[in-house]
Design a protein around this nucleic acid. Sequence first.
DNA 1: ATAGGGTTAG
Length: 661
Amino acid sequence: MRALAIVRKFSTARSVFYVPKQFSQQSQQQQPNSTEEAFAPFSQLQQQRKLLEFELISTLDGCDDLLQIKQVHARILRKGLDQCCFVLTKLIRMLARINIQMDSYPRLVFDQVRYRNPFLWTALIRGYLLQGSLRESVVLYGSMRREGIDPVSFTFSALFKACSEVLDASLGRQIHAQTILIGGFTSDLYVGNTLIDMYVKCGCLGCGRKVFDEMPEKDVISWTELIVGYAKGGDMESACALFDGLPLKDMVAWTAMVTGYAQNAKPREAIQYFERMQNAGIETDEVTLVGVISACAQLGAVKYANWVCDIAERSGYGPMNNVVVGSALIDMYSKCGSVENAYRVFEAMKERNVYSYSSMIVGFAMHGEGHAALKLFHEMAETETKPNRVTFVGVLTACSHMGLVEQGRQLFASMEKYYGVAPSADHYACMVDLLGRAGRLEEALELAQTMPVEPHGGVWGALLGACHIHGNPDIAQIAADHLFELEPDGIGNYILLSNIYALAGRWDDVSRVRKLMKRKGLKKNPGYSWVEGKNGVIHEFVANDLTHPKSSEIKQVLEDILDRLKAHGYQPNLSCVPRDVSDEEKKRILMTHSEKLALAFAVLTTSAGCTIRIMKNLRICEDCHLFMCGTSQIIEREIVVRDNMRFHHFMDGKCSCGNFW
DNA sequence: ATAGGGTTAG
């Protein structure tokens, strides 16, 4: 047994430095006469051989179908590398990646190798695991041990990685238990880190934390994995606590924090961390940039947009050099109100992928430039880049915001037929939105009731929104019943329904919905708006909030504007206050809407001629919309409002949305 | 041939 093991060990080593026949014959013929010469050709051959192996491996890496892999395999055989574990391991891994049944081709390759090293074994075991054949992989692991091959730490890290790829934590737990039994591997840094990553990816944050706490030696990677885990779970406090305790913070750890805040809708914190990171002298790469760009997109502030774009250019990851950064910049500029700048970035990009096109199309759609969105979509069809589900959501919303019912229908019909994208519930939601906004509520309802995919909250939500626009409490009731079942805690749905009843004057129904909300313990999410002030300070306004230091001046400005608007025939739209109060009270409430406060503040603090930009977390109401139209005319300035859905550009008393939003 | 961070929607 022992002898066998030694032979194996030797053979394993030999197989790595296996010399092909044609080369070894050649070297024998040459008869070297000094030691130096004797080794020189051999090591040269070794080098050539190594180069060949690496070349084959990288060729394999670029393969994405069976035919290509078979061609490389033929080359491997021609070069006499049929016993080379190094290359064959890659071959098996690639076959597993494209989901070739392990029992067939990969198994054959494996069986033909006489001296298999742990890496080759691991590739096969990992393949079975990825294909869900847990039993087979356990059996194989047993045979590997019986043949005297000791697992290496790589064996376990590869297995844990496979588990995390198939998101199978219970399987990972079993293997974890095995490593504990064998002993020695759980204290390995690599194995520990893959374990944490697996648990985190599978959503078992607690288990990951336990591994982390028990690791005798941790590095910045262990920390970062957990930080990301907490961030993905929305627990930025824990992420932050961990980060504070991290002795050596590197670029990736910092990036995890920036991205974490960005993904948890805390753009200001994300930007703060990015600034702290820069002050600490940490380098910035494209991933960091994408995180902070996404934060700026959420914030919607032009100054930050230009600032971060500048940094991207200076660090060499501008739109010219990096598709991902470029695509993120397109999205950011669209969301910061400048579809022109977004398009400038789009044009400057050397390479464009489906993200670049989709972001640009969505950008046009958001700004009410539906025709530009459709034009770009057709341009895209001429390229190699294939539209995906998001691209279609983009073009369909573009149609929806423009009321292009027929074009939307045609696109929807072509999705599967010409582009191979099967319509999902999301796309049906777009269609319901398209029909509903256009006032065809019965058709929208029928589509929701007969669609072949199970409708989700988005579908009924679109219908409910349309009922709000067109004032149809009966269909709203149907949509809401579905919504309350699908999203029992979705506060917005209750408020929307109650507002629809209020519009129809059905106050009994309003109080019924209010009571329902109260019973469920749901609280209204307050509407708020914000504007960018001097020096990048963001000023936030909540409805009816008079705590801003300039409140009395703001009130004065609003009253002035109101008087002038009234002289032009403006009448407050009292139906926008869904409460059973006096008309006077309704008028007062209307004047405290957060976007009006923000508008007055902007008028107060910016100079004539410059565009006023307001961001808001909810949909802008009819009255504020009318108010903005009028104000843009009397103060002769452009006003841009970004609500939760889209942009409104007010100019000369008109809005770019054509009062259709 | 072993470990960490990334962009698009309603």
